Structures are given as C-alpha cells and as structure tokens.
Deep mutational scan, measured.
Amino acid sequence: MGFKLLSKLLVYLTASIMAIASPLAFSVDSSGEYPTVSEIPVGEVRLYQIADGVWSHIATQSFDGAVYPSNGLIVRDGDELLLIDTAWGAKNTAALLAEIEKQIGLPVTRAVSTHFHDDRVGGVDVLRAAGVATYASPSTRRLAEVEGNEIPTHSLEGLSSSGDAVRFGPVELFYPGAAHSTDNLIVYVPSASVLYGGCAIYELSRTSAGNVADADLAEWPTSIERIQQHYPEAQFVIPGHGLPGGLDLLKHTTNVVKAHTNRSVVE
C-alpha cells in the first residue's frame, strides 16, 4: 500500500471513529477524501466538511520552486461564519470567499490569524475590503508590521502568557507558548472536538522541520505538551499544512522538532 493511500485511509478511519463516538456532533463529509496538494491548482481553494458547521479550507501556493498546501478553518456561528487564517495570499483568499459563498452561503463576518507569517495573514486586506472584521493577538499584529505583512485590524486580548485561553464565538483560542513562531495560536472547536494546530503542528508525513527561522526550538516541545494537557479530548487535529489526523500529530511534531534540534547540535 502506497504512503499517500495509507495517509488518506488514516484520515478516513479517524473521521469514521469520530462519527461513531459522537453521532450528534459529527456529520463528516462523505463526498470524498481530504484534498491534497496535487489536486488543488494554485489560485483555487477546496472546502472539506469535518463536522456539522465545521470545515477546513485548503489552498496551495508556490514557494521556492515548489507547491505547498495550506489549511485553515471555518466555523459556523449562528447565521454567520468565523474564518481562521487566510488562504495564503490575496488571490487565494478572494477564491476562498467565493467558494464559501458557493458552498455554504453564509457571510464571513470575523477572521482570526493564528500567527504573523504570510500563509496566515496574506489576504487580510481582501477580507477587510469584503467587510470582514480581522483579528490577531497584539504580538501577531506587531510582528506582521515588522515583517511588512498585512496586519489584522483588531487585537485579541488575554493571550499574552503561555497557557492563556479565551473564548471567541464558537471557538476557544489558546496560546501554548512559542513553537513554530513566538505568537502562534491554537484554535479548538469544543462542539466538535476539532483542534486546529496551525503551523505549530505537523502532518504525519512530514519528517523535516522546514521553516524554523522564527521558531523557538527549545520551547516548542513544552508548548505541545500544554496543548495535549489542555485538549486531551480532541479527536480531529488539523495541521497548518497537509493531512489531518488525531492527537498523534502532536507527538510526531515533537519528535521531528527534537530530531532537528539534535542534528543542529551535532553539526
């Protein structure tokens, strides 16, 4: 069995187990497998329904001669939608809004960016022009300005110390501490036991640490421990890039980060 097929099978099995364990909360999309990078042309966006009122959005972007996937989250909030992270750029984010209108038909009224990198804030200006209120932590807003990236308009308070959590509509926002970046936030959907790890969490097929220019490698494993301790009931975990899975993604990420750190020390 090929690795790609095995990865998709694991996603399907995880979703099936969740649907059985929580039949009222989960209505997993039966329309197909989780979209992969090879299936999404740059400039297009796919939506994948995880649970009743919960979707991931998947886009792709060219970077350094390669094409990478990027995940975000959409959560229903009454007759409105909360968006977590842009679709990595203005063109993708405009396509995301169009796809949401086509498939869901509810307005996106608020959006949260989970850290300051372009795959999370690139497209904020498109959201703002569409009347979406954009939010991020003060740290993310400051770092985005320093980096020359787009800056969300509103500040999220109460997320300055490791372990801080605040309720934001249908989700809980959690600051686990520094990891992929010093400002990275985690998003949890309690009604569906869905954990969105953003770039602080890796997919299972990833074996290298990737972009760690703004990471705190020493603190990252401790931050992941905080996530595990705060959300032990999480059933569906979405990484910032690639295929979702279960809580095993947290341990896998820790292993990859520690291996990278150990290699760096040896070198």
Results as ranks from 00 to 15, higher is better:
residue 125 D to W: 08
residue 153 T to L: 11
residue 103 Q to C: 08
residue 243 L to G: 14
residue 60 T to E: 07
residue 111 A to L: 11
residue 35 P to Y: 10
residue 21 A to N: 13
residue 21 A to I: 13
residue 60 T to D: 03
residue 89 G to T: 06
residue 21 A to D: 15
residue 114 T to Q: 00
residue 232 P to W: 08
residue 246 G to I: 05
residue 126 V to C: 02
residue 133 A to C: 06
residue 10 L to Q: 11
residue 127 L to W: 00
residue 116 F to M: 06
residue 153 T to W: 12
residue 46 R to F: 08
residue 164 D to V: 10
residue 152 P to Q: 00
residue 213 A to W: 07
residue 132 V to H: 02
residue 137 S to A: 08
residue 100 I to C: 02
residue 133 A to V: 13
residue 228 Q to L: 11
residue 99 E to N: 14
residue 75 V to H: 01
residue 8 K to D: 14
residue 25 A to E: 12
residue 16 S to V: 14
residue 47 L to R: 03
residue 115 H to G: 00
residue 128 R to L: 09
residue 19 A to S: 14
residue 74 I to Y: 04
residue 102 K to S: 14
residue 261 T to D: 10
residue 247 L to S: 14
residue 61 Q to I: 14
residue 242 G to D: 05
residue 93 T to P: 01
residue 41 P to R: 11
residue 117 H to D: 00
residue 256 V to N: 02
residue 72 G to E: 02
residue 163 G to I: 06
residue 39 E to Q: 08
residue 55 W to E: 00
residue 107 P to W: 06
residue 18 M to L: 12
residue 137 S to M: 14
residue 257 V to A: 03
residue 177 G to R: 02
residue 86 T to W: 00
residue 226 R to F: 04
residue 160 S to C: 05
residue 128 R to P: 05
residue 93 T to F: 02
residue 186 I to P: 00
residue 119 D to Q: 01
residue 196 Y to S: 00
residue 139 S to F: 04
residue 42 V to F: 06
residue 180 H to T: 01
residue 171 V to I: 09
residue 255 N to H: 13
residue 165 A to W: 14
residue 214 D to Q: 07
residue 177 G to P: 01
residue 169 G to H: 06
residue 100 I to P: 00
residue 174 F to H: 02
residue 175 Y to R: 00
residue 135 Y to S: 01
residue 187 V to G: 01
residue 96 L to H: 03
residue 236 F to L: 08
residue 189 V to E: 02
residue 9 L to F: 09
residue 43 G to S: 09
residue 116 F to D: 03
residue 190 P to A: 14
residue 96 L to E: 00
residue 190 P to F: 09
residue 5 L to C: 10
residue 8 K to V: 10
residue 74 I to Q: 01
residue 146 V to W: 11
residue 240 G to Q: 03
residue 49 Q to Y: 14
residue 223 S to I: 00
residue 140 T to H: 02
residue 27 S to E: 09
residue 231 Y to W: 06
residue 122 G to C: 06
residue 224 I to Y: 00
residue 172 E to D: 08
residue 58 I to P: 03
residue 87 A to R: 00
residue 149 N to F: 08
residue 54 V to D: 04
residue 34 Y to Q: 15
residue 15 A to E: 04
residue 99 E to A: 14
residue 4 K to N: 14
residue 26 F to T: 11
residue 200 A to T: 06
residue 169 G to C: 05
residue 33 E to L: 08
residue 195 L to R: 00
residue 177 G to I: 05
residue 94 A to Q: 14
residue 250 L to T: 02
residue 171 V to G: 02
residue 187 V to R: 01
residue 127 L to T: 00
residue 222 T to Y: 12
residue 1 M to I: 06
residue 16 S to E: 06
residue 94 A to M: 15
residue 236 F to R: 10
residue 142 R to K: 14
residue 75 V to K: 02
residue 199 C to S: 03
residue 194 V to Q: 00
residue 165 A to T: 12
residue 72 G to K: 02
residue 173 L to H: 06
residue 179 A to D: 03
residue 93 T to A: 02
residue 209 A to I: 07
residue 103 Q to W: 12
residue 1 M to V: 06
residue 234 A to I: 09
residue 241 H to E: 00
residue 91 K to A: 15
residue 41 P to A: 13
residue 27 S to W: 12
residue 229 Q to M: 13
residue 23 P to M: 12
residue 72 G to H: 01
residue 263 R to D: 15
residue 55 W to S: 00
residue 65 G to I: 07
residue 246 G to D: 14
residue 57 H to R: 03
residue 136 A to P: 05
residue 259 A to D: 14
residue 111 A to V: 07
residue 110 R to G: 09
residue 193 S to N: 12
residue 18 M to G: 14
residue 164 D to F: 10
residue 258 K to W: 10
residue 188 Y to I: 02
residue 239 P to V: 01
residue 210 G to L: 05
residue 202 Y to T: 15
residue 128 R to V: 11
residue 50 I to M: 08
residue 152 P to T: 04
residue 257 V to M: 06
residue 36 T to E: 15
residue 259 A to I: 11
residue 218 A to E: 13
residue 167 R to T: 12
residue 64 D to I: 07
residue 260 H to S: 12
residue 263 R to N: 15
residue 132 V to K: 04
residue 38 S to Q: 08
residue 23 P to D: 11
residue 127 L to V: 03
residue 67 V to Y: 15
residue 160 S to R: 11
residue 126 V to G: 04
residue 236 F to P: 01
residue 240 G to V: 04
residue 176 P to E: 00
residue 185 L to H: 02
residue 170 P to S: 12
residue 238 I to R: 00
residue 168 F to W: 10
residue 152 P to A: 02
residue 76 R to E: 09
residue 258 K to L: 10
residue 239 P to A: 04
residue 102 K to H: 15
residue 259 A to Y: 09
residue 264 S to G: 11
residue 212 V to K: 06
residue 103 Q to S: 14
residue 265 V to G: 12
residue 210 G to Q: 06
residue 13 L to H: 14
residue 139 S to G: 12
residue 112 V to Y: 04
residue 247 L to N: 14
residue 169 G to A: 06
residue 53 G to T: 11
residue 145 E to I: 09
residue 163 G to C: 02
residue 149 N to P: 06
residue 223 S to R: 02
residue 262 N to A: 11
residue 57 H to Q: 06
residue 250 L to E: 03
residue 247 L to F: 09
residue 73 L to G: 02
residue 43 G to R: 08
residue 106 L to W: 08
residue 12 Y to H: 08
residue 138 P to A: 07
residue 93 T to E: 00
residue 205 S to R: 07
residue 111 A to C: 07
residue 148 G to L: 09
residue 137 S to C: 04
residue 261 T to S: 11
residue 40 I to Y: 15
residue 193 S to L: 14
residue 196 Y to M: 06
residue 169 G to Q: 05
residue 86 T to I: 05
residue 260 H to C: 09
residue 94 A to K: 14
residue 41 P to Q: 13
residue 44 E to R: 12
residue 19 A to L: 15
residue 256 V to S: 02
residue 101 E to D: 13
residue 66 A to H: 13
residue 164 D to S: 13
residue 163 G to V: 07
residue 66 A to Y: 13
residue 57 H to S: 03
residue 146 V to P: 06
residue 76 R to F: 06
residue 238 I to K: 02
residue 167 R to L: 11
residue 65 G to K: 09
residue 255 N to S: 09
residue 14 T to A: 07
residue 34 Y to N: 12
residue 4 K to D: 09
residue 141 R to V: 08
residue 256 V to R: 04
residue 249 L to N: 04
residue 165 A to F: 13
residue 44 E to A: 11
residue 98 A to G: 13
residue 89 G to I: 02
residue 156 L to P: 05
residue 168 F to V: 07
residue 194 V to I: 08
residue 34 Y to D: 12
residue 86 T to L: 01
residue 115 H to M: 00
residue 60 T to P: 04
residue 35 P to L: 14
residue 151 I to W: 06
residue 197 G to E: 02
residue 40 I to F: 15
residue 9 L to V: 13
residue 234 A to P: 07
residue 174 F to P: 02
residue 129 A to I: 08
residue 74 I to E: 01
residue 143 L to V: 05
residue 178 A to R: 11
residue 29 D to G: 10
residue 85 D to P: 00
residue 55 W to L: 02
residue 123 G to Y: 04
